[in-house]
Simulated assay, not measured.
Amino acid sequence: MRGLVSFSIVGSAICMFFLVALNFFLTPTLDWSIYPCIALLLWPLSMYFVYRQNLKQFAWFTSLVFLILLTVINLRETPDVLWVLYAAYPLVFWPVFTMLGKRAYTMTVAIIGAVVTSLYYALLNIAFSPDAPWVIAIIFAVGWWPLSLYHARKGSFFAYSVQASIWVSAFMIGMNWAFSPSVIWAIYPIFAVVWWPLSMYFFRAKHHMHSL
């Protein structure tokens, strides 16, 4: 395994040298080689941390490399739009989640994670695009985390279908109200979603009748 780590270091260095030279001789006015070079750092880093069996440090270093890469691209190419802030949160969340270990699968972490994620993107929504409340979709997505974890541990699948249907319906109504209030279209997907708890209810009732 140590030989593979050494090979990855040498191979990454050779590739980076080749890309820098190619950039210098063919397109000296356009510094594009910095992007693949930063990405190439992941190869030896991955091999090293796999060799050391330290996945927590691997998560931190990988997130740092991607964060640096995206920040450089953002500031060089589109400095007027700080889109790197949207990608920064999941890049930081991954190593933090890894550091928590088994505690990451608790209800407390699920609730805190969903709330913090929603607040972070809500602030970005308010700061950069207050006219389009797209954060509704983020809240809807992360809300499944504590909802699904709770019912999976309780084994309450029928209650899950009811609450999940309500959650989906609330999302549809929110999207309808926020983006197209003049056209009431939310009723159509809500009608389809209602069949989920209904089908589970009648399946359970039929199963109960057969068991009598």
Rank of each mutant, 00 (worst) to 15 (best):
P79A: 04
A87T: 15
S156F: 04
L198I: 15
Y121P: 00
L119Q: 04
A164P: 00
R52N: 06
P28A: 02
L75H: 03
M175N: 08
I14S: 01
S46R: 04
F140S: 09
T62R: 06
A104T: 11
S148A: 15
G155A: 11
R52W: 01
V193E: 08
M209H: 09
W196H: 07
V194H: 07
W32A: 02
S180I: 07
R204P: 03
L75Q: 04
G143W: 11
S12T: 11
L123V: 09
T108C: 10
A21K: 03
L82T: 13
L123N: 04
F171I: 05
N54K: 11
L70S: 03
V96M: 13
V20I: 14
I190M: 11
K56N: 14
G155R: 03
L64S: 06
F58M: 14
R204D: 07
K154N: 14
V96E: 09
Y51T: 02
H151D: 07
P197L: 07
V72E: 01
H210M: 12
W144Y: 05
A127Y: 11
W83Y: 13
N54L: 06
V142C: 06
A141K: 09
G11E: 01
A178Y: 01
G101E: 07
A132K: 15
L41S: 06
A104H: 03
Y201H: 12
P79R: 02
W185M: 06
S161E: 08
Y48M: 06
M209C: 06
F128Q: 08
W134D: 04
A88I: 10
A127C: 03
Y86C: 10
M107P: 08
M99P: 00
L4D: 13
N23S: 02
P146V: 15
A141Q: 05
Y86A: 14
K56Q: 14
A186N: 14
M172P: 00
V96A: 14
W83N: 14
L124P: 04
H208S: 10
V81I: 10
Y86N: 14
K102Y: 09
L69D: 00
S165C: 11
S148F: 13
N176C: 04
I14T: 05
F157G: 10
P146A: 15
I14F: 09
T98G: 08
F157L: 11
L64G: 05
F203T: 11
V162H: 06
S169P: 00
W83E: 13
L30T: 09
L100S: 04
P133E: 03
V10C: 01
G3A: 13
N125A: 13
W144V: 10
P90E: 02
R103S: 14
L4C: 10
L82M: 12
L45T: 04
M107G: 09
I111Y: 08
I184V: 14
N23C: 02
L100N: 07
W177G: 08
T29G: 13
A87S: 15
Y35K: 02
H210G: 12
L19Y: 01
S118Y: 05
M200H: 10
Y121N: 05
P95S: 14
A141G: 05
S199K: 12
A192F: 15
F49D: 08
Y201A: 14
I138K: 07
L19K: 00
R2N: 08
L41Y: 02
S46I: 03
L67P: 12
F66M: 00
M107R: 05
S156N: 14
W185P: 15
Y89A: 04
F191A: 15
A104I: 03
S63I: 03
L22P: 01
L124R: 01
G113S: 15
M99A: 15
I184G: 12
